[in-house]
C-alpha cells in the first residue's frame, strides 16, 4: 500500500475522532467508531503485507472481529435496549470544541514533541497526526457527559495508540498486539455489563448522576 493510502487511512482516523467530538447521535458515534476501526484494520493488514508475518494476520483478523463487528454490535444492542438515541450534552459548545481541537492538534505538531514523533523520521507527519488523534480521544472523554460516548472515546484512544505503534515500527511484536486485543475484548465485555448495571441503577448514563458515589 502506498504512503498516500496510509496517509488517507490516518486522515480518516483523525477525522473520525473529530466527528466523534461533533456528533450528537449515539448511532453516529458508533458508525464513526466502526469506520475508524476499519481503517485501523486496514493499516494492520498493510503491515502484514509488508512483513508477511502470519501472527500479524491473526492480530488483524482478531481486530476486525472485535473492533469492526463485535464492538459496534454491542453498542447498537445497548442503544436499542435502553433507547439511547441521542448522546447527552458536552461541557463545551461546538465552536469552543473546534478551537480546542485546533489547539490540541497544534500542540501535537509542536517542536517540543518532535523527539517523540521522530522515532521513525520517514513517518514524522503520520506520527504527529496519530499523536493528535490520541490527544483528541482523551479530550473526547473529558468533554462528553454520556457514558457511551466516553467508552467510545476510550476505544478511540486505544485505536490511536495502535496506529501510533504501527507507524513507529512497533507492530513487529505480535505478543504486544495480541495483548492489546485481548485487553480490548475483555474490557469491552466488562464495560458493557458495567454500563447496563449503571443504567439499571441510575436510570441514566449521564455520569453527572453518579457524583454522590464519591462519598
Amino acid at each position: 500500500m502506498s504512503i498516500m493510502a496510509l496517509r488517507l487511512l490516518l486522515g480518516i482516523i483523525f477525522l473520525t475522532v473529530v466527528f466523534l467530538h461533533l456528533t450528537k447521535k449515539n448511532s453516529g458515534a458508533v458508525i464513526a467508531y466502526s469506520v475508524q476501526s476499519l481503517a485501523i484494520v486496514l493499516v494492520l493488514f498493510n503491515s502484514f503485507l509488508e512483513t508477511g508475518r502470519v501472527s500479524l494476520l491473526f492480530v488483524t483478523l482478531l481486530a476486525f472481529v472485535v473492533k469492526v463487528i463485535l464492538a459496534p454490535l454491542f453498542f447498537v444492542r445497548l442503544i436499542k435496549k435502553n433507547g439511547l438515541r441521542f448522546s447527552v450534552s458536552t461541557y463545551l459548545n461546538i465552536p469552543l470544541t473546534l478551537i480546542i481541537i485546533a489547539a490540541i492538534t497544534a500542540m501535537a505538531h509542536s517542536q517540543k514533541l518532535a523527539p517523540l514523533v521522530n522515532i521513525v523520521p520517514a513517518n514524522h507527519a503520520l506520527l504527529s497526526l496519530a499523536l493528535s488523534a490520541m490527544f483528541l480521544s482523551l479530550g473526547l472523554i473529558i468533554n462528553r457527559k454520556g457514558a457511551l460516548s466516553q467508552i467510545i472515546g476510550i476505544l478511540s484512544f486505544e485505536n490511536s495508540i495502535i496506529v501510533f505503534a504501527v507507524f513507529a515500527g512497533l507492530e513487529q511484536s505480535p505478543a504486544l498486539q495480541a495483548g492489546i486485543m485481548f485487553d480490548l475484548f475483555v474490557w469491552l465485555v466488562i464495560a458493557t455489563v458495567f454500563m447496563s448495571m449503571i443504567y439499571r441503577h441510575f436510570g441514566s448514563l449521564d455520569v453527572t448522576s453518579m457524583r454522590h458515589l464519591k462519598d
Binding site: 514533541l113 490527544f135 482523551l138
Partner: peptide, 25 residues
Amino acid sequence: IQSGNINVYISYIFIALVIALFWVL
C-alpha cells in the same frame, strides 16, 4: 480534587501526560 466526576479525573490524566511529555522531551 476528588470531585466524583469521571471527566475531571480524565482531565488530570491528560494534563499529567502533557506535562510529562513536555518535561521529558
